[in-house]
Computed example of a mutant assay.
Amino acid sequence: MITIIVIGLVFSILLSGCGKKEEKTLSIGEQFGLAYAPLEIMKSKGFLEAALQERNLDIAVQWKKLGNTSAIRESMLSGDLDIGFTAIPPFLIGRDKGMDWRIIAGISKTSVSLVTKDPDLSSISDLKDNHRIMLPQPGSIQHILLMMAAEKATGKASAFDGQLLSMAHPDGVTAFISGNEDLLHFTTPPYLQEELENGGRVLLDGRESFGGDFTFIVGICQDRVFKDTKVYESFKEALVKTMEYIESDKDGTLRILSEAYEYETGELESYLGDGTTTFGTGVEGIDTFVEFMERNGLISSSLKGMELFWEQDAK
């Protein structure tokens, strides 16, 4: 009798397991800073979930916070990430190395600045061997902007490559504020403003280094996502609605971002109100990055023949 009961229980469990439907998810990877603010709005307002439901797609949206583009690349390769957000240079490096990802759209432009507390520094030409520069990783947009400035100042783009420290922005802020004067941080809002309020000053401005304006963050995905037309179009629709919301409801935007970033709305209003951080789906500056990175051996010449956008009219 006991044997029959045990067999019955096992059979019941197996049937129950077979009846369970595995939930399909759409996984989205973001990084740190106000440049990713549109994603916090999309998340809070549920625009993506609504767009998926309109197309009768029973898909859960999963948001992941990752420290740098290397983490995004590895997650995409393993299939754990469907759509990621990164700056243009690391996207180009990944594309050049064979990643089948391309750009969906841009989401932001922002200030990118090298901050110091050392009173003896008036330009990057004054940097000594003991100075260390924190940034997300080699090949990041901060690294490329530093190389652009180094080439102009010293004639050698890689002049400061031996002084880099890879660190996510939140950790970099903590290290900068509590650390010695030989520690510099190449960062973005709101971490930039926090450091300026704690004894820091801008040593190098990213726009000056680049020689003009450029898109900071772009959304990317692989071929498998682009070919899943309903999912891809759902995301594009949600992104447009997000940008429309940011433009039409300033107070609502500030409330959402205040909760997401844990800053007072007044602080965020001042950070966003200076005009240095803007949001939109256009992509600007990619040709300049390609030319510089190819010339300095960071990408190959064959990249110029590759398609970089899923939709060529998105440029």
Rank of each mutant, 00 (worst) to 15 (best):
V10H: 08
F11A: 13
I13Y: 00
G17D: 11
K24A: 09
S27L: 09
G29S: 14
G29T: 12
G29W: 06
G29A: 12
F32S: 07
F32W: 15
A37G: 12
I41P: 07
K43S: 07
K45Q: 13
F47D: 03
F47W: 06
L48Q: 09
E49Y: 01
A51N: 12
L52C: 13
Q53C: 09
I59M: 15
W63K: 08
K65Q: 12
N68M: 10
S70W: 07
A71D: 05
I72G: 04
S75V: 03
M76Q: 10
D80A: 15
F91M: 07
R95P: 02
W101Q: 03
G106A: 03
S111M: 05
V112F: 00
L114E: 01
T116D: 02
S122V: 12
R132Q: 11
G139N: 11
I141Q: 06
I144W: 01
L146I: 11
A149E: 03
E151K: 07
A153R: 03
G155F: 13
K156Q: 08
D161W: 14
D161M: 12
S166G: 13
S166Q: 09
P170G: 07
G172V: 02
T174Y: 02
D182C: 14
D182Q: 12
L183S: 04
H185R: 00
F186Q: 00
F186E: 00
P189Y: 00
P189S: 09
L192N: 03
Q193P: 05
E195K: 09
L196E: 06
R201Q: 10
L204D: 01
D205R: 10
G206T: 05
E208S: 10
E208M: 06
S209L: 03
G212S: 09
D213L: 14
I217F: 12
V225R: 06
K227C: 00
T229Q: 15
K230S: 08
V231N: 07
E233C: 09
E233L: 14
E237K: 15
E237W: 11
T242L: 14
E244V: 09
Y245Q: 05
S248K: 14
S248G: 10
K250N: 08
K250M: 01
D251H: 01
D251V: 14
G252D: 11
R255Y: 00
R255I: 10
E264S: 14
T265G: 04
G266P: 07
G266E: 15
L268D: 05
G273Q: 06
G273Y: 01
D274A: 03
T276Q: 14
G280R: 10
G282I: 00
E284K: 08
G285V: 04
F292P: 03
E294M: 12
G297Y: 01
L298A: 09
I299C: 04
I299Y: 02
S301N: 13
S301C: 11
S301A: 14
L303D: 13
E311N: 12
D313E: 13
